[in-house]
């Protein structure tokens, strides 16, 4: 059997459609997931001074459950489980929700490492200078923590983009769904999967470059600094 990539040409539209879905799913969940992680980190940071509060424990439970179960099971639980409880949910919404909850948990843990390495004294100094808890969290704790853990954050967002291939299993028309669709039509499984795998590889490289570009702008204050 020989390889024949020309059999893919009639399906360019499907591949582009899948590519666009994968891209916007990643874009939306990256922003929503990071926002969620900031909220989780803020609530946990506030609680970390004394005994862990109920909220802090619940959030810790959320992070551990997500980090110790497979994404595909989280996705199935939301997509099949919620309608059975009387909450109707579409495949796309289930995919967005699962990806956001997943990235949120991992990013919250990454951020926590960055926050923990901020010296306690800086936080106290900011409060003493009259900044509110929120202002101090934002300017003194969060931004330096972000710049410190930014490389891990990039890797995590790429992992979520690659992991989004799984949403094809609940029939979201992403890049992998396009590959399965084409494979079921022309029975050229290897060629299709090889091409789509390479597209994912390019996406991963592109995403990393884009994140690094944004990071250089965002954290320009660190260049030449001692932080």
């Amino acid at each position: 059997m020989t390889l024949d990539f020309s059999t893919l040409l009639p399906y360019t539209d499907q591949i582009l459609h899948g590519l666009m879905t994968t891209l916007w799913l990643t874009a939306v969940t990256t922003m929503a997931g990071i926002a969620l992680a900031i909220v989780v980190a803020y609530l946990r940071d506030g609680a970390s001074k004394g005994r862990p509060s109920l909220v802090s424990r619940l959030l810790g439970g959320y992070v551990e459950v997500i980090r110790n179960t497979p994404f595909i099971v989280q996705l199935f639980f939301l997509f099949f489980g919620l309608p059975a409880l009387g909450i109707p949910i579409s495949a796309t919404v289930a995919a967005l929700l699962a990806m956001t909850l997943n990235l949120g948990a991992y990013t919250a843990e990454i951020l926590r490492a960055g926050i923990d390495s901020t010296q306690r004294g800086q936080h106290e100094a900011a409060r003493a200078l009259g900044l509110s808890r929120l202002q101090s969290f934002r300017h003194v704790v969060l931004v330096p923590a972000f710049s410190r853990v930014y490389p891990s954050l990039i890797s995590q967002c790429i992992i979520v983009m690659l992991g989004s291939a799984v949403v094809s299993q609940i029939s979201v028309f992403d890049l992998t769904y396009a590959a399965n669709f084409i494979q079921s039509r022309n029975f050229r499984g290897f060629e299709v999967y090889l091409v789509v795998t390479l597209i994912y590889l390019l996406l991963a490289v592109g995403l990393r470059l884009a994140f690094e570009f944004v990071g250089r702008r965002l954290f320009a204050f660190r260049q030449g600094g001692s932080a």
Binding site: T176, G189, T197, A204
Partner: peptide, 23 residues
């Protein structure tokens, strides 16, 4: 880089279908 930059799901599909192509 290849294994870290592509979805595990695709790697599984390629192993499954790729072996068939090789006979």
């Amino acid at each position: 880089d290849l294994f870290q930059g592509t979805p595990l799901l695709m790697q599984l599909f390629l192993a499954y279908f790729g072996a068939a192509v090789l006979g």
